[in-house]
């Protein structure tokens, strides 16, 4: 079985233990990597930032390390991919379900989605990662892309 996260997570689009001022900067950093690697159009970053301010994606998680999953309309995407950042210091996102609430976030997955149905496995895997607090803690502590891929490969395989 193909594991979606490891195959969609390009090493060029993974930023570990970074520091950013705010959510716009994080989205810009990951989105720029996705653009440089040829996955998204130059309109993607601004579209994702605009979308985030209108329809935020902050998700409070069980273990207290919170996540956000910025994404935008498929028209800004060239081919599907996943960008990712872990932060050494949290930045504030707004809560998806109650946008007036602030969520300090340390794990960000930027979803470059081409067609919704085709990426259902990737989305489900992202959700299952977010639901596993030990795994989220492991991911946050990783220093290398290889380490991240190993964690995802093992966990997702075991959960299938």
């Amino acid at each position: 079985m193909t594991l979606s996260i490891p195959s969609l997570l390009d090493s060029r689009c993974v930023l570990l233990k970074c520091e950013y001022k705010n959510s716009d900067d994080v989205i810009t950093a990951i989105g720029t990597r996705l653009f440089d690697a040829g996955y998204v159009k130059d309109s993607f970053v601004q579209a994702a930032i605009d979308r985030e301010s209108e329809l935020p994606t902050g998700l409070p998680l069980a273990g207290g390390i919170n996540a956000a999953i910025p994404h935008t309309e498929i028209e800004h995407v060239i081919r599907p991919a996943l960008g990712m950042a872990t932060l050494s210091k949290p930045v504030d996102f707004q809560n998806m379900v109650s946008p007036t609430e602030t969520v300090p976030v340390r794990l960000i997955f930027v979803l470059a989605l081409e067609q919704p149905k085709a990426q259902i496995e990737m989305l489900q895997e992202v959700a299952s990662v977010l639901q596993n607090k030990e795994l989220v803690a492991d991911v946050i502590n990783q220093n290398s892309y290889e380490g991240i891929i190993e964690i995802f490969t093992n966990t997702i395989e075991n959960s299938k």
């Binding site: 329809l55 994606t57 999953i69 498929i74 998806m96 979803l111 989305l123 489900q124």
Partner: peptide, 14 residues
């Protein structure tokens, strides 16, 4: 969900 592409796909299936 916001755009009917990502989040609601996961939620509907779940």
């Amino acid at each position: 969900c916001g755009t009917a592409i990502a989040t609601s796909t996961v939620v509907a299936k779940a």
